[in-house]
């Protein structure tokens, strides 16, 4: 849970200034520091980053009455329903950050495998 929150906050801040893939750096760094298991690193990085994109996208979607969302859905999915694009967006962020989080975790394991035991649940 903590991991999700940290990744969400940091990736949001990073993307205000840096390119979209900065969320991957955030996920990798955070998971290498706090990741405890591979699956947890992937999952929580996925959720943390996806939440940011989903939240921001939904905010814009509702503020602008979905005009652009429906045109882009038409373009990408040939459907005026915004559902597809509203699912695709967090998935892309999640997959990117999730894989990066997993990589961060495994890199840490490769460098200092003891970390997993030391940092038992506080």
């Amino acid at each position: 849970m903590r991991l999700i929150l940290i990744i969400a906050v940091l990736s949001f801040l990073a993307q205000l200034l840096l390119p979209w893939w900065s969320q991957a750096l955030v996920a990798a760094a955070t998971c290498s520091w706090l990741g405890q298991k591979a699956g947890q690193s992937f999952g929580q990085a996925f959720i943390g980053a996806a939440l940011v994109w989903a939240g921001y996208a939904l905010l814009i979607h509702f503020q602008t009455e979905g005009i652009m969302t429906s045109r882009m859905s038409q373009l990408i999915f040939k459907s005026a329903s915004p559902a597809g694009i509203l699912l695709l967006v967090p998935f892309v962020a999640g997959l990117t950050a999730g894989l990066a989080g997993l990589a961060g975790y495994y890199i840490r394991q490769a460098i200092a495998p003891s970390q997993q035991i030391v940092s038992k649940r506080a």
Binding site: Q15, W20, A57, I60, T64, E65, M68, M72, A93
Partner: peptide
């Protein structure tokens, strides 16, 4: 390029305008 295009920070979302 789907990454920057789908990003709510830089992508098409930033072109959405409100009434």
């Amino acid at each position: 390029a789907f990454g920057p295009l789908l990003s709510p920070f830089t992508g098409f979302w930033q072109n959405a305008e409100s009434t």
